[in-house]
Amino acid sequence: MIEKEKINWIYKKIFTIRFFEERIKKIAKEKIVPGYLHTCIGSEAICVGVMAALNQDDWISSTYRNHGHAIAKGCELNEITSEIYGRKTGICKGRGGSMHISDFSKGMLGSFGIVAAGPAVVLGAALQEKINKSNKTCVSFFGDGAIHNGAFHEAAGLAKLWDIPMIFVCENNGYAEATATDWHLNTKELSDITKAYDMLSYIGDGNNVFEVYDITKKAINEAKQKNTPIFLEFKNYRFSGQYEGDTQLYQPQEEIDKAKQNDPIKLAKENSSKYGLNKNDLEKIINEAKEEVDKAFDFADTQPWPQPEDALEEVYVNYPVEINR
């Protein structure tokens, strides 16, 4: 049985992420938002389901497609929006931008823009947990496209060899940029690649937040009990383009329509009564989520820009160049 408080949390987060991403998509059409935006519409259940099985101080890594992970991990909405807008009060002081939303104090080791950079970093955090006999859970999020990259494989091999109980979470959303996953996979199932490392793996419906939660929770227990890494593949659909502005020409309408029937938000709504939420409860959560997102974007609009010279902070080796822009 899953406790009432957690259910509310799950619903609140899943709606917050959807509203947040819809809002930023809309804003990006209306005005200039600096930089690349990779939204995660369709990933909400994976972000929230996995994070529901973690504590705030457990470790994760994310990617350029990180808004959902950051929101679910407890990063402040105001600081996220401020960062996306490039403001001084942003979560990374305006240095990172949308692709690098990350707050170490919330257990985020980083949101990396280089595909497959995360798993090895999380492996290191998990090694630390092991050496210090502490028990924080370590999770790396990455996409289906990342499984072709050597860095992923090297991390996977070491994790297994060293008996590191980390969790690899692969979001199989049907595409890596403009390349369909069914084309780029060599194996029948994506998670079959773990066979090379004799690593445990499970496949789940990435649109069903409670299934994601369940599988993740069990996997964390099993990984710790057996001292072994576990690979989780969650299948979903990338409704957003690779980035905002992508024409998505390669995503056929009939495929999108079909995927919409399993939209994670739709499923969550349909399941709500099963989890003890009546119509009013749901409405209340939805309104709260909307309001918080609205507030965060209003906040960001009022925030100061960094000073140009702020760029020079926190570089621990200086080099004397005269800058007179």
Binding site: C92, R95, G96, W305, Q307, D310, Y319
Partner: peptide, 10 residues
């Protein structure tokens, strides 16, 4: 300058 490329426009 001797820094990574910062994101924010200013």
């Amino acid at each position: 300058p001797h820094t990574p490329v910062p994101f924010s426009p200013p």
